[in-house]
Amino acid sequence: MKRWLLLLLVASLGCGEARTGGDGPRVWRFAIEESEGSVQHAYALEFERRVERASGGEIDVVVYPYGPLGTSTQMTEQLNLGAIEFAMASPGSIGKFIPETQAFLLHFVLSHDDAVNQRALASPELLAAFDKLYAAKGWKLLSIFPEGEMVWTTQKEIRRPDDFRGVKIRVMTSPILLHAYNAYGASATPLPYSEVYSALQLGMVDAQVNPVFAIERQKFYEVTDWLIFPGHAHFVTTAAANREFYEGQTESDRRLIDDTIAALNGYIFDRQVAFQTDRLKTIIAAKKARGARLGLCGDFTNFLAALTPEERAELVDCNELLTITPPLTSGERQAFASASEAVQQTYLDTGGPDAERMLRLIEAAVTEAE
């Protein structure tokens, strides 16, 4: 978006502590990178509920799902200009502004256990280090949190890098992700999120990668046959505020923001875990209702344990359209891990002056959390 258009948006929305009227509540705008019904949407709505309740109605939080305010990059620019007060900024979009954040896009850096990642990403040392990088761009880092395991939706089962040969996979616009999937032997193709379904439907791409909740929400399972859970990466995002806005608040309002964000860390982890189970159930049921086959590759022990006996019978045991194959073996995972090692050097070469320090901080936080 042209800068003059962004400035026009700033003028139309106002900035800082905008009011709906002379005596109306202060308006805090919160833009997210995902649609309604997503993990980020649940986070923003809970932030809205808690802030409005704690402020006694003096603050009105307005949540903007993905779309009305433009792309993720455009929303980040609006955050910088103060057109919005809060925004989600994932490494795939914010990496062009803060290249060090692309460390979260590297494969086999975070733990396979999302609970470990939750603890690691909440490390005060890690948050403080990244906040210094955010401050240089005019942003205040509020939190870093995982949204769930990254899952491949494909037309065939993929268990080793050789299986990716000839496969066109959609990825976010990031050199790290492009190099990662090219290193596996795939043909990585960057596409806007809004174009992924049609690209899969028309055969422009053969696969894509996202957490389960996004796969279900965007119905990517309708135009692919397999969900592969390789355990290679987790989707990580960050919540940020315009720094001038944050620092211009009263001490009590800054405490309100900080306390709300701290409380949301546990809340959103429980929500995203529930999302993964509920949305996978929806996918299996929808494929069965359409008479379409579905293949699942991964460890589904926890998923199966969460099903009622009736759900397990209907969705799994008596579902002839469903195929479940074992998770990747240690050798199969190692083949992908080995192929991804060269991508770390790409990150170190392009990830900014603090790239290596930030990567080591992440690795140390994961080790400590384990």
Rank of each mutant, 00 (worst) to 15 (best):
A292K: 14
E17R: 13
S55F: 13
G67I: 08
G57P: 11
T325M: 02
Q102M: 14
L256G: 07
G16M: 13
L106I: 07
R254E: 00
N210W: 00
T277F: 15
S123V: 08
P327A: 07
E149T: 00
D162F: 10
G82N: 10
S55V: 11
V196E: 08
A180H: 11
R159C: 09
Y197T: 11
L322M: 02
V51A: 06
R254P: 04
S198N: 14
F336Y: 10
S330T: 14
N182G: 14
T71N: 06
A83Q: 04
V151N: 02
H179R: 15
A83D: 06
D162I: 10
A313H: 09
V273P: 00
E157M: 09
S338N: 14
N210I: 03
E310Y: 02
L110R: 01
M172S: 11
N319F: 04
P175Y: 02
K287I: 06
Q155P: 01
S38P: 13
L127D: 06
M150F: 02
D163E: 10
T73E: 15
L106C: 07
N302F: 03
G298L: 01
I284S: 01
K168A: 09
P190N: 09
D114R: 12
F229V: 00
N242I: 03
D23M: 13
Y193M: 12
A214K: 04
Q344T: 15
L141C: 09
L142N: 07
L7F: 00
T282A: 15
S72F: 08
W4S: 14
G291C: 12
R357C: 02
R333A: 15
V167R: 09
G291T: 12
E149G: 02
L6C: 08
W4L: 12
A214W: 00
L133T: 07
I228L: 09
M88F: 08
I324S: 04
L8I: 08
I284P: 05
D299I: 03
Y66F: 12
R170E: 13
E251W: 07
S338L: 14
L142I: 06
C297W: 03
Q334N: 15
R333Y: 01
V116G: 03
K168L: 07
P309A: 13
R29P: 05
E216S: 13
I59N: 04
Y43I: 13
G21H: 09
S330I: 05
S35E: 15
T238F: 01
C15Y: 13
Q345F: 06
S55E: 05
F275P: 00
A285R: 12
L328C: 02
L361C: 05
S12F: 13
D225H: 09
L6H: 13
D114C: 08
E48F: 00
I261H: 05
G57I: 11
D163R: 03
A233F: 02
F229S: 00
N182M: 11
L304I: 09
D354Q: 14
D349A: 10
T224S: 11
G185A: 07
R170I: 12
T250V: 02
W4T: 15
S35G: 11
